[in-house]
Simulated assay, not measured.
Amino acid sequence: MLSFGAKIKYFRKKYNHTQKQLGRLCGISGKAISRYENETSAPDIFMLKKIAEIYDTDLNYLAGISSKVNNKFDLELSGIELDLIMWYRKIPKKMQKIIKKIIRVSFQDDTISYSDQSEVSPCVNENKDDEK
């Protein structure tokens, strides 16, 4: 599960806010937001509630009590998974379609074990077959 600081940073970047902008929305300095993200300081319950409201997320999620991001669904992602989502959202739609196709094809190939971290994509396997 992500730390409190990582959650604040994730939501801030998701909404394209700088630390200074989030600080302004909360009525505090950008340096205070930086300290929250770096976990050298922690907000009080009122500030935590304000941040949760700004980012439409569950207060218990921010505080690390629950994995429920908001009232719509449960979500527990690692840091790299959150990074991948943010990167995906920033790339052109045409590239998103290509990535969706790669993922779809990968899951249709029942010879790939998804528990193996060193797996290769079906596209690479096809290229190996072409070399024979």
Rank of each mutant, 00 (worst) to 15 (best):
I51K: 01
P122C: 13
N70L: 15
K72L: 15
M95E: 13
N125M: 08
V120L: 04
Q21M: 09
R104I: 04
E53I: 14
D44Q: 08
S29Q: 09
I65G: 07
I33R: 00
N125Y: 04
D130E: 10
K68W: 01
E126R: 07
F46P: 00
S115H: 04
T57M: 14
K31R: 09
K90H: 11
M47P: 01
G23P: 11
K93R: 09
E126A: 11
W87T: 11
D56Y: 08
L84C: 15
E131G: 00
R35K: 07
K100T: 11
I103G: 03
I51L: 07
I8S: 07
N16P: 06
M1K: 08
I33C: 00
A42K: 09
I85C: 06
I51N: 01
Q19E: 12
D56Q: 12
S113G: 03
K101R: 09
E39R: 04
G5P: 14
I51W: 03
I45G: 02
G64R: 02
I103Q: 02
E126T: 04
I80L: 12
Y61K: 02
H17K: 10
S121Q: 07
D130P: 00
S113Q: 03
Y55P: 00
D110T: 11
I45H: 05
D129C: 04
V120A: 03
N70Q: 12
A63D: 15
E81F: 06
S78C: 09
L2A: 10
L59Y: 15
K50M: 08
D58Y: 06
